[in-house]
Design a protein around this nucleic acid. Structure first.
Lengths: 126, 126, 126, 126
DNA sequence: GTGGTCTAGACCACG
DNA sequence: GTGGTCTAGACCACG
């Protein structure tokens, strides 16, 4: 389910965060689902355990998971925290839309990109 | 014309790059215009000369300016280089649109953001 | 593998760039190979780290390496970027051939030089 | 006869040197011909007098002109000095041929470039 | 240990 | 006054 790209400029922990969000968008992961243990995921992805710890800490801060000591880590969406991060994302989106305008990318092209990404996420709407 | 935010997570040199692109989008800077000298901008923004040098070098690499040693730095758009960076930007845009979908930001909201940013750039089309 | 000449009119960072290209021509470095770390090369060549950083950034801009923060720097050829630089090189070659004609250097002499340089690179074709 | 490009990365004085050599290759200028006065050329090209002075000093060092005080500046080829510079040029040619090999420019392409440049110089062989 | 950013300051070439 | 190169050194993020 998770695939990391070591050559990517994005830090590994952030790739895990983003893929978790994507899995939720797609409906692959839903509220209450159990995440793999840190140890397990570190083994599966062949990365350092502290990297997974960092990713889970970030997901917890962003209000996407909660960790119950001795029980494990679960998808649990905290709408308040999520809304804070949503504002964050909007700022970053604005910055890149500004760039998109410089590069003369049209509204239509952006919409098409959005719909294609959404299409890939279709499973969630069924 | 250029304003930097030291508290921003974006590196200073990149803020200058982005603001230069924005100034071009807005029509404030056009092909052939002279950029402030490195020393002048360093003084105005109260940052180190090498930081401005880094920004100008990046702008040159991206095909937006050319610099002539001893004479100054000028807006000069190299479409081939710009197209390479456009592809880069599209990748980054895709990643953030993916995130936007997670945060349930609608197409309409994105279009509105685009148009507002474009609106700010209206001066160029008059 | 890398040797710099402090008395050369060519900047140090450019000597590193040229020697990297030469190592690739020779087959000493191939796609995917890891470059020495910035700190290591700085130590080996007894030059400042920022000089190596500058060289690596140039190589990245020219589409010859990619650098992954925290992981290292790797040979990775980006043909599109390389082609842009190839055009650049052809312009510089034309300028010097023009000079060569002034100095009455013959086609035969130039071919001989080419073949000798190519010969030094023979290892790659075996 | 002389045209300078202010946007060129090549220093102006060097453009004048190179164009003088080219004019000789072409047969436009021959031994004994009088060069324009420094003052005149500065006026014609709309550049600083000291820039022309620098160009003429370089041409004199390279054994291509001699200045006779109060008389003017004349084409006068000093073969010994020219041969020294020829070695210099050969070194620079080697460096760029090395690069050409990296960019997979073939012998045939180089010869073609040489012949085209020579063709433009045809007047000299008549 | 890896690369990224930035400062402060020096010296050079061109015009 | 313009940009180009380089050093010495600091602090940061990722793993």
């Amino acid at each position: 389910m998770f695939v990391i790209d070591l050559r990517s400029p994005d830090p590994i922990f952030m790739q895990i965060v983003d893929q978790t969000k994507r899995a939720i968008s797609k409906g692959y992961l839903v509220e209450g689902d159990r995440m793999p243990s840190i140890r397990q995921m570190a083994k599966d992805l062949a990365v350092n355990q502290s990297t997974i710890t960092r990713a889970y800490r970030e997901l917890e801060n962003e209000g996407i998971i909660t960790t119950v000591a001795g029980r494990g880590t679960f998808i649990s969406l905290d709408q308040e925290k999520i809304n804070i991060k949503k504002e964050d994302m909007k700022e970053r989106l604005k910055a890149i839309l500004q760039e998109a305008i410089f590069y003369k990318l049209t509204k239509e092209e952006i919409i098409k990109m959005y719909e294609e990404l959404e299409g890939k996420n279709e499973t969630k709407s069924q």
